[in-house]
Write a protein that binds this DNA or RNA. Structure first.
Lengths: 246, 246
DNA sequence: GGCGACGGATACACATCGATACAAAAAGCG
DNA sequence: CGCTTTTTGTATCGATGTGTATCCGTCGCC
């Protein structure tokens, strides 16, 4: 199954925002728009993104502030490409110091933007993760289990290894990244596979069922993953990170 | 004593070459020129450089080939900034993964070049120093193994030597250079052999299988190399460099 | 309690991957 | 050079992972 890169375009100017989104979609990427910072954060919580295109000049929190906030939050690993208005070196230097991965000065050609987007994604993909800001921590503990996100498997209290398939691992990590939150099947599909649900798509139900089996989570008791009828699923157990108190 | 960044400018066009070198010097950097690949390698052997500016379009070995050679040789750690002609060449660069750190399309403003040079240098400097030398290191340790990149063979904990074929060694080094990253078969083919996959090409699967045999990795549990169905493979174990703590 | 929608479980289909066998190509070696 | 040995790619078959279809239990609503 092919992964399609998903870009989040953040710009207060409606024309630029929709223009960029349309252009990216025409060129085979997924693209979503956000008009300002709060909307950006909301999108980041519900979908997985491969890159954020961020305008520097915006009312309210400007792009530099947002960029810095991003870098200290949960989505620190997502690459950022800044759009700077002037040919002003200070903005760009500050931007790169704030942790942006590239920048482009307005006005820009869509072609150039697309090329830079692809280049940044490629570049960050190739970097070994210890060289970048790490997205997730190594060990996520919950109940009697620990998930080793490096080795991509589960450990029980004795340290016994339980292997996970790729899809199971991704699903569990999404749950652990969003504990105590109802996640719809749409969101789960988006966050695990970056694709949208088709009609009568029940593959998520299946994956949940298989994950429950691995966790020996009885669907009746549902200690870990609770079903919320007609809404989705919740991971309903405290998760501790790298040995912190839960 | 203060360190002044030293840039190597490689371009066959005499005007660009000297123009860039002059501009960089006027802005407080050291700069050295080279007209083609052999001269570049000679310079690299006699001086230390902080970055290489490399033209893609050159007679003889072009910049892409030189870049790939750089990345598999002694000077793999030096950042590279590519200069490309304005046409579709950028796509080609992105498609090929030769590990450039940034690129700039001609014609460019000297200001822009300088800004990007500084950005790339800053970015690589910000990386933890012990990890940056990964590229030039001799011994890479993981699990119960050590890979000697000079002798091109494996050592187990007793020091027993396990020989590797050329392809096995290249594949393992690619994995160790990019741990915890999902690498597609395309990427692995590119990085190990510099060629693209044909239809129904399963040579990478074969090499992975053979490498697993060498590592006595049974592909089920606690594996070094995990398969991610329909995406590729991950090296899923911490790698330490020249005896550092993992 | 009865009805309908939703979700769990099972079975199955299909694609992908691992392992083995074998052939072609490359590298040693006299 | 010709032969052997090693390495590397192709072909094939069985095993495994993941999605679709189906049946059936259960929950909520009237």
């Amino acid at each position: 199954m092919e992964h399609i890169d998903h870009i989040l375009v953040v710009d207060d100017d409606h024309g630029i925002r929709t223009g960029v989104v349309d252009y990216l979609r025409k060129n085979g990427l997924r693209a979503t728009a956000a008009a300002e910072g709060r909307e950006m954060m909301a999108q980041l919580d519900t979908s997985a993104f491969d890159l954020i295109v961020l305008d520097v000049m915006m009312p309210g929190d400007d792009g530099l502030v947002l960029c810095r906030n991003l870098r200290s939050g949960k989505h620190r690993a997502v690459p950022v490409l800044l759009l700077t208005a002037r040919d002003d070196e200070t903005d760009r230097i500050i931007g790169l110091e704030m942790g942006a991965d590239d920048y482009l000065t307005k006005p820009f050609s869509p072609r150039e933007l697309l090329a830079r987007i692809k280049a940044v994604i490629r570049r960050t993909r190739m970097l070994p993760p210890n060289l970048r800001i790490t997205e997730t921590t190594d060990i996520l503990a919950f109940g009697r289990w620990r998930l080793d996100t490096t080795a991509r498997h589960l450990l029980d209290e004795d340290g016994t290894v339980v292997a996970l398939s790729g899809a199971e691992f991704r699903l569990l990590r999404v749950f652990l990244d969003h504990p105590q939150r109802i996640l719809s099947r749409d969101q789960l599909l988006n966050l695990t596979q970056g694709r949208d649900a088709e009609l009568f798509d029940r593959s998520i139900d299946l994956m949940v069922s298989r994950l429950r089996q691995r966790l020996q989570d009885d669907a009746k008791e549902q200690a870990y993953i609770k079903t919320v009828r007609s809404e989705g699923y919740v991971f309903s157990m405290p998760v501790s990170v790298n040995g912190d108190a839960p």
